[in-house]
Design a binder for these strands. Structure first.
Lengths: 149, 149
DNA sequence: ATGGGTGCAAATGCTTTGCAAGTAC
DNA sequence: GTACTTGCAAAGCATTTGCACCCAT
């Protein structure tokens, strides 16, 4: 199986783009740590590792990582992007807590199958999908029911 | 059954807010025409009807319409909001064509049921959800297969 | 009369872009 | 050598906000 680097390098080559030190560093940090992250969090993480890469380059590289299929952009209702790993992770969907912002991932194969069915019915060729359920997690539910609050 | 106006007025009253001419006009135009629309499209529509309402007021009123439950905000992967009617429409999800931008609505009760099941398993209380499938519609699929292109 | 509402223009926050200088191949 | 890259600062865009004046209740 191809490593992340191989996947990225192959993509870059196919587009006649270059594998620079900045792209290397971003790739490393993106997959070193977090699962979900935002552009700014990546910037901080790079700084903490003494990597001085400009915001512009971060945005440009994230876009390439998405196009190469290593990352996916997720939008959680806010107006800025979050990213998550595609490489090495099964496709999943999200429960987003409106109370504390916690994100719970889940996999439900039967939903995917019904989606395929819907696509067939509408002569639609799916390329990607996102399902997200907003509400309250267990803890926040308890808090909001707590009459002593 | 309560009319849209009644729903809106009730919401405003409950928050000690006022039912102004601007809010009236926006409510009317929002439900006169479109289903899906963006803030800017609403602005144009208001101008075409000789209603000179500022952008600020449009944004402030849309937010109130969402809170009152008459509208829902949908984010189609772009970085700006779309709105759709809740009042008078069954809950549905979307197929979004990456080729031409067309939006196909669908209702699939079995998916909703599986979502409820997922929430139960995770002790999660759903408040809303959004499911969207991106891909190519029939027409765009034909175009991309067209070898004469 | 008065607390909320409006328009305007400026501010915001995330993201993109133009440009001059640097670098991978 | 030459096309692609980078950082910087400026621009872009959708949306929000501060403020002085206005108006529904």
């Amino acid at each position: 199986m191809l490593s992340k680097e191989d996947v990225f390098k192959e993509y870059l080559e196919s587009k006649k783009l270059k594998f620079t030190a900045e792209r290397q560093a971003i790739l490393d940090r993106v997959f070193a740590n977090h699962k979900h992250f935002e552009a700014d969090e990546l910037l901080v993480d790079l700084r903490l590792n003494d990597l001085k890469i400009s915001k512009a380059t971060i945005y440009r590289t994230l876009s390439l990582l998405v196009k190469s299929g290593l990352l996916r952009e997720v939008i959680f209702g806010e107006r800025h992007a979050h990213y998550e790993h595609v490489y090495g992770h099964e496709h999943h969907d999200h429960l987003v807590c409106n109370g504390c912002g916690k994100i719970i991932e889940f996999v439900e194969y039967r939903i995917e199958k019904l989606q395929d069915e819907v696509c067939r019915e509408n002569n639609f060729k799916a390329e990607s999908h996102r399902l997200q359920i907003q509400g309250l997690c267990e803890d926040c539910m308890k808090k909001s029911n707590d009459t002593t609050k």
